[in-house]
Amino acid sequence: MSETLETTNLTLFEQLGGAAAVDAAVDIFYRKVLADYRINRFFDNVDMEKQAAKQKAFLTMAFGGPHNYTGEDMRKGHERLVKMGLDDSHFDAVMEHLEATLQELNVPGALIAQVAAIAESTRTDVLGR
């Protein structure tokens, strides 16, 4: 009981391990995304360093950390991909990789659910609806 109370004083971002955890997650997550034939065509012809930096900013947000993302940024950033046919199935694939990444890092299920909920909240903006 007291343990639970103590941990709830920490933010989600702190519970996950902060910036270091984001770095570890980006490395696993981006590799999974690029290796997935269902979605990797959306990442053709992108600068991998810049893309990894974007993934980091995205995961920082999903981890409840400090970020400057707005819904409008999400919309603009994915406009080109929506034209290429980006839809729910692709968004689902990315969500799958996000959850698998966190499982690989032994993040407790309750925290994974919170991260997934934040990521899920970007769906309509990402898909331009």
């Binding site: 360093e49 810049k50 980091k56 900013a57 920082t60 400090p66 970020h67 400057n68």
Partner: peptide, 8 residues
Amino acid sequence: GCRQGVCQ
């Protein structure tokens, strides 16, 4: 961009 050392 991000002003927090991420986007470079």
